[in-house]
Amino acid sequence: MDIFDVFLLEAVLNGLLLGGILALLALGLNLVFGVIDVVWICYAEMIMIGMYAVYYLHNVYHWPLWLAFASAIAIVALGGAALHHLVIRPVLAAEPINQLLVTGGVLFFLQAAATLVFGVEFRNLGIRLPQLQFGEMYLSMARLIAFGVALAAMIAMSVFLKRSYLGTAIRAISQDRQIMPLMGVNPNRIFLVTSALGGALAGVAACLLVLQYDIHPAIGLSFGPITFLICVLGGLGNMMGGFIAAFIFAQFISVGGFFLHVEWGYVLAFLFFIAVMFWKPQGILGGK
């Protein structure tokens, strides 16, 4: 095999692995949007909080890693519920754009608060996972784990949504919010639970990202925008669409970055996004 093609294949496979984690990122955001109709602009900052939680619990307080992970997920889940209760609920009746902006304010707040509390230094867990060799290709173990966990989390989520009463209510509430009380459902409670679930997914993402990236207060900016675009590309609130869009984006980034520089991969992905918006403004799977 031509060496060039091996590297290209490596890029494609790495893109596939990246797609898994991007899909997980998109899932939480889509879940929240689908149910509550609000985009958490501060979603990536919630993940940042989760990453710091893992770092502090594991490296500073020396908790075992699994416990640090579990706690971080719980912390971000609580954060999601708190975000809804304190910030979103008061503006639910306001203009949609205010809901978008208020979470943007939270973005500023979390980013600055992290700077204040944790400082601007880059931190990492100090765990180095090996590179796996397949023939002439190298794949990152951390990415492979992230891919597997992301896939498992998504399957668990879809089973939950399909099978459980709460999951069915979450799917139902996005279709007709007003009559939910007739079913005995308290919509506020569903919103709170959904926000906690969205937070928990952000927490899972945090655990996976902390294995691959350094933590710093502005880390959210490096994957926040891409997550929004994936969700819009797939049709906001459309989880299947988000899933597919994540893999498309990941290929642009990975293969584009292979031919050019990694930023150009992102530029290509973003331009592709803009182009698609003109072709199908409702997203690739948008029906309406």
Binding site: V102, G105, L107, F108, F109, A112, A113, A114, T115, L116
Partner: peptide, 19 residues
């Protein structure tokens, strides 16, 4: 010495403003 404090307060005020 409190790096980030200004933006923390700023962010908080933004949220309160919008609400």
């Amino acid at each position: 010495q409190y790096h980030g404090l200004d933006l923390t307060v700023y962010g908080l005020m933004l949220v309160l403003f919008i609400i």
